[in-house]
Each structure stands twice: as C-alpha cells, then as structure tokens.
Design a protein around this nucleic acid. Structure first.
Lengths: 242, 242
DNA sequence: AGACCTGTTGCGGGTTCCCGCACATGGTTT
DNA sequence: AAACCATGTGCGGGAACCCGCAACAGGTCT
C-alpha cells in the first residue's frame, strides 16, 4: 500500500511515520507533502491508496485537498488528523465525502494506541471512524435544539461571507422572507438572542458570525473555502447572464 | 534561572526543552504548563524569571496569560513561540508589554540556530526580538496605506464583537459620526470597498470582519480576549450607573 | 498670516435589516 | 374530517446603517 502523509509540522510528521511503520506492515511506501497543493500533485502522480491528512495548512487546507483527491479517485481512504475538534471541520468533511468512501477523523492528542487502531480501521479495513473526543465536544453546552440543519448552515456561510439577504435568497433559491426566517433561527441557535441586553443592543448579523466562530461552528478554513465556492458561483452567474 | 515552558504539544515541548538544555547553561530548572491558566498558577507559585510561551492553547491563550504574568511581575522575560504570524498576535502583545520588558516572538518553523539565538537574546540578555519572517508577512500585499492605527483597531474590535455604532461611540468616547468615519476607513483599508460589485452588494459590517479574519488582522484568540475586555467594561458601566 | 491638511461632529436621506402579523401549503395527530 | 403543527411567503414599519455635505478646530507648510 502506498500512503501519502500530508503534514506541515516536522515533529508530527516523523511521529506519524514512525507509527505507520510500526503498525501497518502492508505499507510499502510513504510519501510526504507539506500542504494541500503538494498533496494534490503527489496523489495524482503517484497513485496513492491511502492518505493521512492534516487539516490546517498554509497554502491549501486539508478539506479542499481532500475534495480534489476524492473527485479524482473516490476510493481513496483518508484519515484526517487534526489538532482541533471544530464542528466546522466535521461539516466540511461530511459535505465532500463520496458514497462508500472510507475516512476517519482523529485528534492529534489521541494516544498512540488509538492512533494505531484508527490507522488500521480506516486505511486498511476501509471503515469510517470519528474520534470519540470529537463527538463529545460536539454536544454544545448551550440551549437544546441548537443543531443547525443544512439549509441553516448554508445561510450561515453566506452571512459569514458578507452577502446581503437578497443575494442569499437568489443563491439558495429561497424567498427573501425565508432567508430572514433562517437568520432568525440562526440568531436563536447561536445564542445571539439569549445575550439580549437592553443596555447593549448588538448588531445581530456580526454577532452571529462572532458566535459561530467562538463556538467553532465556523473557522477560518471554512471561510476561505466558502469564499472560493462563492467565486465559482459568481463566475457561473456571469456566464449564465452574459 | 528558572524557566517556565508553556506548550500544549508534547513534541514541541520536548524539542524546546532539549534546545533549552543545550543552549542555556544558566537555566537551573525547567517547569511545564500546558495552558495559560496553569501558566499563571505556576508562575505565581514558583517565582519564574523567564517564560517560553505558546500562543494558541485550550483554556486560556498565551496573550492573556502573559498579561497576568506581566501584571504581577513586569520584569518577567517572555519568548512567544507560535505557529502563526498573525498580525493579531503582534498587536495583542504590543498592547500588553510593560515598559522595559523583554520579549520575543519566534515562529515554530524557525531553524534551530535562530531559536537558540532568540532564547539567549530574550531570556538571558533581556533584548526584544521579533522573527524576521513575521515582519515580512506583515507587509500586506493589498493597497498601500492600509495599516490600521490604534483607534481604528479599537473600533474594529468592537465591530467584531457585534457592538452597534452607538455603543462603540460610548465606549470609546467618540461621537456617533466619528465612529462611522472610522468604519469608513476600515472598509477602505480592509479592502471591502475594493470588492464593490454592483451585481453583488455586500453587508460591509460583516464583510469587514470576514476580511479582518482572512488577512489575519484578527484571529479567534483576539475575539475571545476582546470579549472578556468587553465584559469587564460592561461590569464597570453597571457599577457606575447603579 | 494665510493656505492647507487632518480629524471630529451634526444633519439628512436613501438603503438594508429585523421582525410582527397574516396567509397558504402540506404533512401529522386525534 | 378536523385540528394541528412546521415551513415558505408577502406586507409594512421602525431601527440601524452607510455616507455625502458642510462646518469647525488644531496643526503644518510656505
């Protein structure tokens, strides 16, 4: 098996290489990449079976790289290996994983045993595996019923990009009023309403983005990825109109 | 000399310990902490002379911990050691460093030699030292004259928290119109104006926050720290009013 | 001194946003 | 079938926001 290790931190990379060699005898070769762009090139050139992928990297993040990899070779098995348990990452992965693809999500703080287990389960056995810690942290402490559904999340992304209601409505194929209803429930679920204070009224739009970031519902990588999606959509719009 | 190493990543911690032992014979003891809170307690209990501090940590970030440390012992020498060259970190540090205190800011990707040099310069010699890479990245590629001055940055923080113009004016002691002028120049300097597109008008407020994040003028830690400052101010307000 | 630049402030008006109210649709419960 | 939700939509109004215009203060250059 040919494994690609995508990791920009040399210490973590050599640790992972170590564990890989120790755990998986079926691995014949290990290749390296230090960012998402390199990962895409190497996977293309080297016909890679399995990938261990860091998420936060400089020029191109792990989710975008994974999207490219899976587009070109949907059967690639990818273990995401990250420092952070952000909901944003899970949503990003869930949005791009192909039918029947194997993947896993493990925290870097996971003990060596659990890492070994995940490597075997995902890369060799083709299972799906998400670190227990991540699901635990996922349960938000705040009010109940605060899980965003997909359409709310889509509106949240557009809000975060700075789109106006009208544009969101157009892009998502909703009426203006419906977009505003989504915003209402976002304000509710993100806890913007709960902070209401007559002495200090808030700008709900900005506050919603703030809360989404602080609760790790969104993160920086999400914003960058969403921006690229928006640019693509905008290009499509222009073509359709012109 | 007693050194406190604040670092939540075990690999980086042991690497740093290694380099410390090799480089600084005047170090008699090395203590550890894995987050900002622990760092504050240990520094208080152990009378620490010098600190190596990671910035991004779980329960309390490096900047807040440093503020506490410096409040209690302004002569403490701190080398910040981070993965990221965010402008937000530099601003955060600049805002809390006491007169005549020694500090440094080094990237984790810095080669071992440069790390050694920085350790000696900051912790032993008491110099101020900022990684060249960081200043280089600081020069924004966009339009010229886009450096925020302090009052613009303050308004940006308030905007990011979701405050309304009126509240910002009150908090910063400006008139409403002056706040709006600051916002205008923020929109200009963050490139919100430059993106103007008649087909897709933006919500400038949200877009400004988005741009500030993407350009690393703000980051998550900034938001959290600013929120705590706001809470303190709000408590003060309440006392003054009641 | 006079011209000039920069930063602060008030006023006014057009736009966007927030959201209550009302109504329609479609699925579920009783 | 009737009652009942959840969701999508239109209308309307008050609040917040964006910003051009104009005035004024303080500092700098000629």
């Amino acid at each position: 098996m040919r494994v690609l290790l995508v990791e920009d931190d040399q210490f973590h990379a050599s640790y992972m290489e170590d564990v890989l060699a120790e755990t998986l005898p079926e691995v014949t070769e290990i290749f390296h990449a230090v960012n998402g762009e390199e990962a895409e090139h190497e996977a293309r050139a080297l016909s890679i079976d399995a990938v261990v992928m860091d998420l936060r990297m400089s020029t191109r993040n792990g989710i975008e790289a994974a999207r490219t990899l899976w587009t070109e070779r949907p059967e690639t098995r990818i273990l995401f290996w990250s420092n952070y348990a952000d909901e944003a990452y899970l949503r990003g992965i869930a949005a791009i994983v192909p039918e029947d693809s194997a993947y896993g999500y493990l925290l870097k703080t996971a003990p060596r045993d659990r890492l070994k287990l995940a490597l075997r389960a995902v890369l060799v056995e083709g299972q799906i595996m998400v670190d227990r810690e991540i699901h635990r942290l996922q349960r938000r402490a705040a009010s109940p019923r605060n899980t965003l559904d997909d359409s709310e999340f889509a509106v949240l992304l557009d809000l975060a990009l700075g789109l106006q209601d009208r544009t969101i409505a157009e892009r998502r194929g909703m009426s203006l009023r419906t977009v505003q209803n989504r915003l209402l429930s976002l304000y509710e679920k993100l806890g913007v309403d709960a902070e209401r204070d007559p002495d200090m009224p808030l700008n709900k739009r900005v506050r919603a983005l703030n809360r989404a970031l602080v609760t790790r519902t969104l993160n920086m990588e999400t914003l960058e990825t969403a921006q690229r999606d928006l640019d693509r959509w905008k290009a499509g719009q222009r073509k359709r109109a012109g």
